[in-house]
């Protein structure tokens, strides 16, 4: 039983390390700011999630596990806020995203191109 928990936490922490590095590699490889935010969110979700679950298994049942889960919840709720604020600020500053296709006008009459998504 102890061995199973040990192996499981090893696997989870290795997976977490893998996704953490993948997110950081994406941060360097991606061509523009919007795509970089996508890459960084891999670190924020799967990387952090697996690392914390692995540590939870190591810590056993107790306050430490609870605090780790608080940390996970914190990432879950603040991650999207930061990503959204960044993306909105970029579009507002008229940074042109690298686009393969702009489908903003696909289901309604096309409005101005400089739509930054803010309410008037």
């Amino acid at each position: 039983m102890m061995l199973a928990v040990e192996v499981a936490s090893w696997v989870l922490i290795l997976l977490g390390s893998f996704f953490t590095i993948v997110g950081a590699v994406g941060l360097v490889r991606m061509p523009d700011i919007f795509t970089r935010i996508h890459a960084a969110s891999v670190t924020d979700t799967l990387g952090v999630g697996f690392l914390i679950l692995g540590m939870c298994l190591q810590a056993g049942f107790g306050l430490v596990t609870l605090k780790l889960l608080f940390l996970l919840a914190l990432f879950f709720f603040t991650g999207p806020v930061v990503a959204h604020a960044l993306a909105q600020a970029c579009l507002h500053e008229k940074i042109k995203p690298v686009l393969a296709e702009d489908r903003r006008g696909h289901d309604r009459p096309r409005q101005s191109n400089e739509d930054d998504g803010r309410q008037p």
Binding site: H38, S41, T45, P80, A87, G117
Partner: peptide, 12 residues
């Protein structure tokens, strides 16, 4: 936004 690969950029 939370699912990697898609971000909400603006809400109106």
């Amino acid at each position: 936004t939370l699912t990697p690969g898609t971000i909400t950029v603006g809400v109106s």
